[in-house]
């Protein structure tokens, strides 16, 4: 066992050469590759981090926009709701107003109809009443009633003196028509009373079974009636007139 120092020096030189060769052909390519890989990974991570930050910023921006949109949507929905409520209230008010107006019109119309109906009913009632009265009086009428009417007419001749004088002027004969024949006394009294009003008058008594019970004075085309029909017609006109006046007074009230 000995040491050859020449070999030792050569081996040291060989080792240093080998160190340089391996550094040149082995370590540097591998370490450069590792460094490049690490740098690439670092760059990619930085890029990924930057992209992540950008993505987060974008997400934040979109979330803000979404929130703003939701708020805007909520505001619009609230505005629309208020508008709808306002529109609904207006429509309801208008409908109520129209209903009130129509109800008022209806009530007015109803009142008018009611009044018209009442008036018609009253008039019809009056006419029915008169008709029934006429029928009853016609059924119950007899010579006594006609004589009573004639007697009553005689009493009313004097207040109608001017009218009778106009009737008998020009010496026209006066025809006195009755439903049934009058008694002689009554005829004489009628003739006397007429001659008191018109001294030269000529009285002609006639009987007409178709005439209503009572007395009719005719001279030419002019006549004065005291018949049951005339009484009832006057009664009917008076009742209807009174009813209309009463109805008009109620409407004014």
């Amino acid at each position: 066992m000995s040491i050859d120092w020449l070999t030792v020096a050569a081996q040291i030189a060989n080792f240093l050469v080998l160190l340089w060769l391996l550094k040149r052909f082995l370590y540097r390519p591998i370490l450069d590759g590792i460094d490049a890989r690490e740098q690439e990974i670092s760059d990619r991570m930085s890029e990924a981090h930057r992209l992540m930050e950008d993505a987060r910023a974008t997400i934040s921006a979109y979330e803000a926009k979404l929130s703003e949109l939701e708020n805007s949507q909520a505001r619009m929905a609230e505005d629309l709701r208020r508008e709808a409520v306002r529109e609904r209230d207006a429509l309801i008010a208008e409908a109520r107003h129209r209903i009130d107006r129509e109800r008022s019109d209806f009530e007015s119309h109803l009142m008018v109809e009611k009044e018209r109906f009442i008036r018609q009913l009253s008039e019809t009632g009056a006419r029915v009443l008169v008709h029934l009265t006429r029928k009853v009086l016609s059924d119950l009428a007899n010579e006594t009633l006609e004589e009573r009417i004639a007697a009553q007419a005689v009493k009313r001749l004097e207040p109608m003196a001017d009218e009778i004088r106009r009737l008998v002027r020009d010496d026209r004969p006066v025809t006195i028509t009755t439903h049934a024949a009058l008694t002689d006394d009554l005829k004489r009294k009628i003739a006397d009373d007429l001659q008191k009003l018109a001294p030269d008058v000529q009285c002609i008594f006639d009987v007409d079974p178709n005439q209503s019970i009572g007395l009719v004075l005719r001279a030419g085309a002019t006549s004065i009636e005291w018949t049951l029909e005339s009484y009832l017609s006057e009664l009917e006109a008076m009742m209807i007139e009174n009813l209309r006046q009463a109805q008009a007074g109620k409407t004014v009230q």
Partner: peptide, 21 residues
């Protein structure tokens, strides 16, 4: 030793010849 150096260097060059970053 030279043989060993040649082997190591040759293998290294062979392995890393296409080893670019």
């Amino acid at each position: 030793t030279w043989i060993v150096m040649a082997v190591l260097t040759g293998l290294s060059a062979l392995i890393t010849r296409n080893l670019r970053p």
